[in-house]
């Protein structure tokens, strides 16, 4: 077995903090604790954790500020971060942070441990196509599209071909749904209102749980967007960029992708 992994736990609720310490210790993690972001920064001077479990609302220095500090001007922090949230402001969370996972309070112990393990081992949850009974489960796709008409159109194309479709109408909801029930393929519209489609994919690519999902970024074809599209298609994390004149093209793209 490899060396014991180190977790830095930052939460101002000392009760929960100590309880989580018990949980992690039972799985032989080395646990360091801090009561707020400021203390967390101090700890980081001597400790190099494999994962930071971070609460958001804390006195002195909250989770957001702590996160920005450890990024040191970079886009991503040096350490993987799992955010604990009381589900207050998910949009802000997804918009401003590039996190590796999130966990709602209260949680089940087994879910917390799985999430932590997944992040640390960068193990993948996705891609399970055969259930316990060995039956073939239909492919799950998630469509993130803020135009209800288009959402319906794309959805019915996939439903008609036997896929399970999980729809979402904005980026925040999309991230929550994709992390909640990990699909095989996620189709994300480029022009989302709250968080742009390519950013949504980027954030999901960073989360351990959703890193192995295949992502398609799409946009209806238009001449003036061609140049922008060219640029975006070369971005990391996007399996495929589809500019369609007919949403049917998305179906063939997904089919091709799942074959490979």
């Amino acid at each position: 077995m490899s060396q014991a992994k180190k977790i830095l736990l930052i939460d101002d609720d000392v009760n929960l903090q100590q309880l989580m310490k018990v949980i992690f210790k039972s799985k032989n993690y080395i646990v360091e604790t801090a009561n707020n972001g400021l203390e967390g920064l101090e700890k980081l001077e001597t400790v190099k954790p494999d994962l930071i479990v971070l609460d958001m609302n804390m006195p002195k220095m909250g989770g957001l500020e702590f996160y920005q500090k450890i990024c040191e001007g970079q886009e991503h922090p040096k350490y993987p971060v799992l955010v604990l949230t009381a589900r207050a402001n998910m949009e802000q969370l997804f918009k401003q942070l590039n996190i590796d996972g999130f966990m709602a309070k209260p949680f089940e112990i087994v879910d917390l441990l799985t999430e932590v393990e997944t992040i640390i081992e960068k193990k993948s949850n996705a891609g399970i196509k055969v259930d316990a009974r060995g039956a073939r489960v239909p492919h799950k796709i998630c469509v993130v599209e803020n135009n209800p008409e288009m959402l319906n159109k794309i959805g019915s194309i996939f439903l008609g071909s036997g896929y399970m479709v999980n729809p979402a109408q904005n980026g925040t909801e999309g991230i929550e749904r994709i992390a909640g029930a990990v699909p095989d393929v996620a189709l994300v519209s480029l022009g989302l209102e709250d968080i742009a489609g390519d950013m949504v994919i980027l954030k999901l690519k960073l989360m351990a749980k959703t890193q192995d999902v295949k992502y398609i970024l799409y946009t209806p074809k238009s001449a003036e967007r061609a140049a922008i599209a060219q640029k975006i298609s070369q971005k990391e994390g996007i399996e495929r960029f589809v500019e369609f004149s007919d949403p049917q093209e998305l179906l063939s793209a997904v089919k091709e992708m799942l074959k490979g």
Binding site: D13, N15, L16, L19, M20, V22, I23, S26, A86, R87, A88, A104, K105, P106, F107, E108, I109
Partner: peptide, 21 residues
Amino acid sequence: HELRTPLASIKTAIDIVVKRM
């Protein structure tokens, strides 16, 4: 949201004992 935080502690505490951790 405010209720969730203390509730998380209570739930986790009970679960830890019940799971014999």
